[in-house]
């Protein structure tokens, strides 16, 4: 399904710059929310660009827009200083990906909407 402009545009602070929010108690919310549990207040927080793989998989049957990339490693990464992302782990042989692996965030093209639509960018991680 195509990602239309308004939706893509709305998410760019998160996709491009990992903008999150941090509550007084130190919890990181990505993306920022309108309301935080317990009515806490939160400040804008830019997540770090390094982190650790908490768990992962290697996708062999991807959604249509991602088919050229398969097989690709994909994991949940805990960023240093708080916040988690689900993201592809690239520039690595998927067989070498491990839980606990150190990674860093890179700006990458996430998907292409055919030859005429939007080019959609965002974060992926590579071995640190």
């Amino acid at each position: 399904m195509k990602i239309r402009s308004p939706r893509y545009h709305r998410e760019t602070p998160q996709r491009y710059r990992l903008e999150a929010a941090k509550t007084k108690s130190g919890d990181v919310y990505f993306p920022p929310r309108v309301y935080y549990p317990g009515g806490q207040t939160a400040e804008p927080f830019k997540m770090s660009d390094t982190g650790t793989v908490l768990t992962f998989t290697v996708i062999h049957t991807p959604p249509p827009e991602y088919s050229d990339l398969a097989p690709y490693a994909l994991g949940i990464v805990e960023l240093d200083g708080g916040g988690r992302i689900t993201t592809q782990i690239v520039d690595v042989d998927p067989a070498e990906v491990k839980i606990g692996m150190r990674v860093k965030v890179e700006f990458r093209k996430i998907r292409t909407e055919g030859s005429e639509g939007l080019l959609c960018y965002g974060y992926k991680v590579v071995p640190e």
């Binding site: 998410e11 998160q14 996709r15 990505f30 993306p31 908490l54 768990t55 992962f56 998989t57 996708i59 049957t61 991807p62 959604p63 827009e65 991602y66 990339l69 690709y72 994909l74 994991g75 949940i76 992302i85 689900t86 993201t87 592809q88 839980i99 996430i110 998907r111 959609c120 965002g122």
Partner: peptide
Amino acid sequence: TEYEGYSGVTFPGLYAMMANAHMA
């Protein structure tokens, strides 16, 4: 959709990540 699906994750992929965590 925005924060999992956009990464190219699939449902088998999500459960596979749970499986790897459970196995570990």
